[in-house]
């Protein structure tokens, strides 16, 4: 396979396969959760499930001051790499073009060199997160193979993307091809690893907030 054929394969059939698995996987995961159902709460409500749920969906993004003090590293590093991923995925013009193909809508991107710098920051944050995971006793105990796998498939597209943008080492086609392939790997594993939190988190936060909201409790 020449690098041109490789690029064509990752842009063509491979992307289709990955997209199919990711989207179908997400839908299946969602339905697995939702179809489990929930009993009607018979206690007299003091507040609103909807208000509590919606509030917690966004409010849980911001930690309270004392939690921030205790888990500062996790929160800062976590936010840095999440915001970094957001910027890199959604604000890099070549990526926006993919979303435009998928959804028919596009939006303004950031200058590529800013995205490039963000990528480096994100990679550094992810490396720091890995070191923390290996060294911290709690994280080490909680971590399993899937955690490291999820980490790997998250950092790979960043690394390959950075290499492709800065055109390091291999031919342009190979670099872009490897980058797209690494994204496809991420897409395929997305619904079946903890990466699925990206969408199930909305449900989790909603349920937490709804349970609290029903009782008129802050969450």
């Amino acid at each position: 396979m020449t690098d041109a054929e490789f690029l064509l394969w990752v842009r063509g059939p491979a992307f289709n396969i990955a997209l199919f698995i990711m989207l179908a996987g997400i839908v299946v995961r969602f339905m697995e959760i939702l179809l489990m159902g929930r009993k009607t709460n018979l206690a007299e409500a003091r507040g609103s499930e909807m208000a509590g749920g919606l509030n917690t969906i966004w409010r849980r993004t911001l930690p309270d001051a004392d939690t921030f003090r205790r888990s500062g590293f996790t929160i800062i590093a976590g936010n840095v790499f999440h915001i970094g991923l957001f910027v890199v995925i959604f604000l890099f013009v070549p990526h926006i073009l993919v979303f435009e193909r998928l959804f028919g809508v596009s939006w303004a991107g950031l200058p590529s060199n800013i995205v490039d710098a963000t990528t480096v920051v994100t990679i550094v944050a992810l490396l720091a997160v890995l070191v923390h995971r290996v060294k911290d006793p709690v994280l080490r105990m909680l971590s399993n193979f899937s955690d490291y796998l999820a980490w790997l498939v998250t950092i790979l597209p960043l690394i390959t993307g950075w290499l492709a943008f800065n055109r390091v080492g291999l031919s342009g086609s190979t670099l872009i091809g490897l980058h797209i392939l690494s994204v496809e790997l991420l897409m395929v594993l997305f619904p079946f690893t903890k990466l699925s939190h990206a969408f199930t988190l909305v449900l989790a936060r909603w349920y937490n907030g709804a349970i609290a909201g029903y009782k008129g409790v802050q969450s």
């Binding site: 842009r11 289709n16 179908a24 299946v28």
Partner: peptide, 23 residues
């Protein structure tokens, strides 16, 4: 160059439909 060469919109619809059925 960064965009898929095939009709991914269609794939997305099939995937969602397939996911709903399987789900």
């Amino acid at each position: 160059l960064s965009t898929p060469t095939e009709n991914i919109g269609k794939t997305a619809i099939y995937a969602t439909a397939g996911g709903l059925l399987a789900g």
